[in-house]
Amino acid sequence: MNQFFEFEKNDGIEEAKRAISTLLMIGSESNLIVKYIMDNTQNNSVVFLTGVGKSYPLIRSHNVLNNLHQVLDEVPVIMFFPGKYSGTDLILFGTIKDQNYYRALSLVK
């Protein structure tokens, strides 16, 4: 972690985000977060995603959801999101709009 903090300090947050995205293969079919979830989820499970606010801006929840949706269709996924769901998009912390469309249901209104 200290090496990463030093990297961010020297190269900036945008370069740090790019490095994390590359390391975790966020934009590819080999996305390591999605792979981990797939490898550790049984058919009769429910997946709970937490900590998305803590991972912002290094990991964006829409990247995980979009990639996960394509491969995990038999198991419900519940994401605890620190913000609002407008019915079409997520608004992180009630202020940061990502303008990505989701086919999701809000469990709490």
Rank of each mutant, 00 (worst) to 15 (best):
L49P: 00
K17M: 08
G83M: 10
A19V: 07
L92K: 01
F4P: 03
P57G: 09
L58A: 03
I96F: 09
I59A: 12
E29M: 11
Y85M: 05
E74W: 10
M1H: 13
G94P: 12
A19E: 07
T41R: 11
D89Q: 13
V71P: 08
N40L: 08
N2K: 15
N2S: 15
F48W: 11
T50Q: 14
K17N: 01
Q42N: 12
Q42S: 14
E8K: 02
K54L: 14
T22G: 00
G12L: 06
V71F: 07
E15T: 03
E74R: 15
N66P: 03
T88Y: 04
L92E: 06
A19I: 06
N67L: 00
P82R: 01
Y36I: 06
G83F: 05
N43E: 15
G87Y: 01
L32G: 02
L32E: 15
E15W: 05
P82E: 07
G51E: 13
L24N: 05
I20Q: 01
A19M: 10
R103Q: 12
V52K: 03
I96C: 08
S45M: 10
F81I: 04
K35H: 15
N66K: 00
I13C: 09
I13E: 04
S106N: 01
M38D: 11
S21T: 06
P57Y: 08
M25G: 15
N44D: 06
F48E: 05
F7C: 00
N44A: 07
L68W: 00
G51C: 15
V34S: 07
S45E: 10
L90F: 06
G87M: 05
D11I: 06
S55Q: 09
G94M: 12
P76R: 13
E8I: 04
D98E: 13
S106G: 03
Q70A: 04
V77L: 11
L105E: 07
F5N: 13
N10R: 10
T22E: 11
Q3S: 13
N100R: 06
P82W: 03
G27H: 05
F81C: 02
F5T: 09
K35A: 10
E14P: 02
L58P: 08
S28H: 06
I33D: 08
I91E: 04
E8V: 03
I26Q: 01
F5D: 03
L65M: 10
K35Y: 12
N63T: 04
A19Q: 08
Q70W: 07
K54V: 12
F7G: 00
S55F: 03
D89W: 03
G87N: 01
V46Q: 06
